[in-house]
Design a protein around this nucleic acid. Structure first.
Lengths: 212, 212
DNA sequence: AAAACGCTTCGCCCGCGAGCGAAGCATTGC
DNA sequence: GCAATGCTTCGCTCGCGGGCGAAGCGTTTT
């Protein structure tokens, strides 16, 4: 009201368990559907819908329609910062000194995408595969081309399980720190898993090695 | 519970209007009494007491008894960061682009003490006056010595209005960015007002000029 | 066209928690 | 000693808001 900043209102949006779960699920930058978020929040779809409406109203998240689904994602970097700030305080509650920094660091690391590569590596990887025509990545969705399917299969990535539905198993993911898209969804996760199997882990320059 | 960080719980602590007012009042780093905070929050003392208990329980604020008063202050820098993060989001709600950064900057400036000098200037000022024996500033409270009263009066600071009660009108203030005490309370405010009247405003080195 | 699906809106119930009056402890002052 | 002050605890009321069932709307599929 009266242009005055509503601290309590904004905080209250995060102050509900269901909404906190939703925001936590979105914290890695991915866009998730209303149903997925309902699952994360452990509430019914209609309840989740109400929460999502409030979060949208409060400009914490944005929505984009795509087919009969509606994808939600965090609205802006400041929102991520805010959530991190809250988490930093929430985690430093009871534990004694030492544990604080450790967990805090772990949480910050977790902010980058959980199952798939992010940051510089993720960006370079996406650019590399995109340049070779193996994947097509846009703001609204991603797709694996036929050549990409072959390439990934040869590389040892198991695409079978998640490939039942052609769309949506490859999703673009905008990393807030890098401000660029990288590969998310099932493909990204499978790709990352394969890389871990090969023992490549999170080296800085491993994107180069992928070109083999 | 179970060591899991309780994002919703922490956010909910800030999500109540009364508690948000309390935290906002403490945001400049000062320590305020329960009654003062009740006034800020526009609630009765017993209601404020309940809120303060919850905020303490959540490790957002700390309390120190002093006489029959109890002073509350924000518990740690992360709490300040969190509140700033929330404010940054709360302020960027409706306004269009341009207004955001302006208001945001203003709020960050306001984080330092409202009525009196803070930051480098405040620290230097406090050190200077303390070295001359004009004030005595400790963690628990401040006091203006007789020589300080004379000095400030000569300087043109009006101490009459706020001097009815000897104690508490001079209060130390720990600035989070500087991590050092500076002059707060009525004396600090009056001093700052006098400096503004003289047109000295917020120059970096004005503490030197005060030695005249 | 009809059915399936995803999501939202409507209506209602119900429990949590903020709020205050009154009373209970501390500490300070005369 | 008694009174005053500052804050907390207790007991209670009550309104807000989260929760889900049922129904409605738009899109996709066959």
């Amino acid at each position: 009201m009266s242009g005055t900043l509503d601290i309590a209102g904004t905080a209250a949006l995060v102050g509900d368990p269901a909404r906190a779960n939703i925001l936590g699920a979105l914290l890695d930058g991915r866009a998730l559907t209303a149903s997925e978020l309902a699952y994360f929040a452990h509430v019914s779809p209609q309840t989740a819908s109400a929460h999502l409406a409030k979060l949208s109203e409060g400009n914490l998240i944005t929505m984009l329609r795509q087919g009969r689904n509606r994808y939600y994602r965090l609205a802006s970097p400041p929102v991520v910062q805010m959530l991190e700030g809250i988490m930093a305080v929430a985690v430093s509650g009871t534990p004694h000194r030492r544990a604080v920094s450790r967990v805090d660091a772990a949480m910050r690391a977790a902010r980058t995408c959980y199952g798939h590569f992010a940051g510089r590596l993720g960006g370079a990887l996406a650019d590399s595969l995109g340049a070779r025509g193996h994947i097509v990545l846009t703001e609204d969705g991603g797709e694996v081309t036929d050549s990409g399917t072959i390439f990934l299969s040869d590389f040892g990535v198991d695409l079978g399980a998640a490939q039942r539905r052609r769309r949506m198993f490859c999703r673009p993911c905008l990393d807030w720190t890098e401000r660029r898209l990288h590969i998310g969804g099932a493909v990204g996760a499978a790709l990352a898993a394969r890389c871990f199997d090969l023992g490549w882990c999170a080296r800085t320059k491993d994107s180069r090695a992928l070109k083999i």
